[in-house]
Amino acid sequence: MRNTRVMRDVKARQGVTQNEIARRAYLYVARNTTLPPQVRHQAQLQLNTFGKYTRPNTVKNRCSETGRGRGIISEFALCRYQFRLKALHGELNGVHKACCTSPCNRGLYIY
């Protein structure tokens, strides 16, 4: 599961966590319309000096088991197939297969 994309995502998550407070402070100044434009511009320039992997939108939820980037069930941090496998093995608490006799038979699983 330690493929390059996962490592990149970990890097992004670390970068965001480490720089979050400083970025928020600059964002506050830059977006504050009551401050003089020059100050706001300076803050925006400072914001631009932060690296790519300090922005929260570079973080992508990936499967914690396989590293797959699509079809992630975010509550479990698993892709849909790993979710199914683990659910059928009973490794996920409160998740079990739905059936016709069950009161909730709309989906495959209820949780």
Partner: peptide, 26 residues
Amino acid sequence: LRTGAKYLRANLRGPAMMQQYPELGI
């Protein structure tokens, strides 16, 4: 007026982000 207060008010997202890969973590 837009005072940017929402950037200060919002919760920090980093700590929750670090829980995606428990075994890789930090």
